[in-house]
Lab assay of single mutants.
Amino acid sequence: MASQGTKRSYEQMETDGERQNATEIRASVGKMIGGIGRFYIQMCTELKLSDYEGRLIQNSLTIERMVLSAFDERRNKYLEEHPSAGKDPKKTGGPIYRRVNGKWMRELILYDKEEIRRIWRQANNGDDATAGLTHMMIWHSNLNDATYQRTRALVRTGMDPRMCSLMQGSTLPRRSGAAGAAVKGVGTMVMELVRMIKRGINDRNFWRGENGRKTRIAYERMCNILKGKFQTAAQKAMMDQVRESRNPGNAEFEDLTFLARSALILRGSVAHKSCLPACVYGPAVASGYDFEREGYSLVGIDPFRLLQNSQVYSLIRPNENPAHKSQLVWMACHSAAFEDLRVLSFIKGTKVLPRGKLSTRGVQIASNENMETMESSTLELRSRYWAIRTRSGGNTNQQRASAGQISIQPTFSVQRNLPFDRTTIMAAFNGNTEGRTSDMRTEIIRMMESARPEDVSFQGRGVFELSDEKAASPIVPSFDMSNEGSYFFGDNAEEYDN
């Protein structure tokens, strides 16, 4: 783990906690998980779902989305002020799938948001429990990260689609708070800032007046979040320049895209947490497990152990491969979309394939898809080993990566060399080191050039047997250095459309 220093740990961010010791953190995270579980059980009762239907990941996603929508204050306010045809701002819903006479049927349900809020609060001892809501947002974000390569979004903001390893959390809503900021990748933060800068260039009043003052505060806050992700002084200094700019424009845009590229080699610290679907927490609570009393951590053995003992089902389209669908969801559960496939294969105990080789589309089923041909199958979400999630980018030494994705962002704290394609990355730096950030740029390029592919990161860190909950005997895996390590390699994943 990167030293926490003055930073709060993510469990504290996750639970809005002030400084807590490890036991208190485990208890408050457990409380959050228990609340999600209780809410899910109650919703299944309301909807009269069978046990099997309640364990269907598509039903879980609909129920999670309903509660997130019920608590989305800004959108609710907007919907009330701008009524649109056929949208009731006070209601929320989605597809629920039921097994009827041996076939899967889709039923569109509609609930009062007020009623959903009441059920959620009741499951969370009367609190709004925003930490639990954020947790579900991060699960949705991790699922998107594993399912889609955001080529269009990258290109629109002047970045290269091969930089997708920097895009963790790119679909997280803005209201996801400190826990959300911690899991956002460098590219995601750059993209958010670039969008602001572009608006400022096109709209003279963007930075002016009372609204402009708020915009400015948001801009500086985002700059500080991004600065905190960088691990070298030169990158941090460049972020200070971007933040202090009187009138952010093209120079800042250039600096930010430069920094994003540099992060492929001088990786930023991005938190990883295993956020599971509500249909995993519900049955665990129903079986009598007391998360608050037992304590829970999002970055240790607990999620692995929970998945070892969970039964989750998914709808499967006619030509999809259930094992591939399982891999997709497994990666999402562990926030591992940008991790090295060699490491993932070792931990999972079966070969993890790149996205383009998977015969599976996303987990969600569109409303126009034919239910007649839908089957369902068990998702295999178990693992051979477990490993500690990392909050750091690993040290800054790398190795060759593949054509589709030119770097990785480690999820697990496991000893290995970190793949990246130096030639491709360095070719993108057209040696432009003039301007006010020239000395920093020169320094950053120097550090990137001296990074050695064969150097090892996370020295001495290994994986653990599932029986080793105290992480007492690390097993340090050895990897084939020459092997392909990137998930979005030469990829044809669908595009994420909101």
Rank of each mutant, 00 (worst) to 15 (best):
I406Q: 12
R26D: 05
P474K: 08
D290L: 14
P95F: 08
E11L: 00
D439H: 07
T15E: 00
T157R: 01
G349L: 04
A260K: 01
G37W: 11
F458P: 00
V242D: 09
E380R: 00
L307K: 01
R152Q: 09
L68M: 05
D240Y: 09
G485H: 01
A332D: 03
A131L: 00
I57T: 08
C275R: 04
F488C: 09
C333V: 12
E494C: 02
R55S: 08
C275P: 08
E294D: 15
R150K: 11
N417E: 08
F464T: 06
P322F: 06
N395R: 12
R150S: 09
T390N: 13
R355A: 07
D255C: 05
P354T: 11
Y52Q: 02
L341Y: 01
R243E: 01
A153W: 04
A2L: 00
E81C: 02
N483S: 13
Y296G: 05
R361W: 06
D145R: 00
M163Y: 11
M43R: 05
G460Y: 03
T157L: 04
Q20I: 00
P161C: 07
S245P: 09
M32A: 07
K87T: 12
L315D: 01
M189H: 14
E107G: 10
D16T: 06
L306N: 02
F71G: 02
Y78G: 03
K325Q: 11
P277L: 08
N124I: 09
Q308A: 13
H324F: 02
A181Y: 05
A401F: 07
G185P: 01
S383K: 05
I408C: 14
A428S: 11
G37K: 07
S28R: 10
P410Q: 04
G362N: 05
M374D: 05
M191S: 08
R98D: 02
T423D: 01
R305W: 11
Y40A: 12
L307H: 08
T171P: 01
L276K: 03
E339P: 01
Y487E: 05
I265E: 04
D439W: 09
R461E: 02
T6H: 00
M331I: 15
A337I: 15
A237I: 02
G300A: 11
I119F: 12
A278S: 15
A493Y: 12
S170G: 09
T423V: 05
L341V: 08
C164H: 04
N250M: 14
R382Q: 02
I347H: 00
G5C: 15
N432E: 12
L79S: 07
F420K: 01
L344Q: 04
N498S: 01
G30E: 12
V329I: 15
D240R: 01
N211L: 12
P161F: 05
A153N: 02
A237F: 02
E46Y: 08
P474C: 06
M32L: 11
S141G: 14
S345H: 11
Q327M: 10
F412H: 06
F71D: 11
P248T: 11
F412P: 00
G282A: 15
F464Y: 10
M66N: 08
V414A: 08
I96Y: 07
G490W: 07
M136L: 13
M222S: 01
N125Q: 08
V29Q: 08
I96V: 13
S478W: 14
R305S: 13
G249W: 10
T424N: 12
T411P: 07
A278W: 04
E24H: 02
I444D: 02
K325A: 02
N76Y: 10
Y219E: 04
R436G: 10
T373P: 11
Q20F: 12
F479S: 09
E81L: 12
R156S: 08
V242K: 06
E14W: 02
C223D: 06
R391S: 07
R361K: 12
G356M: 11
L49P: 05
A403M: 13
A129H: 11
Y52I: 05
Y219Q: 04
P322V: 12
A323H: 14
R461S: 00
D340L: 01
D439N: 12
M222A: 04
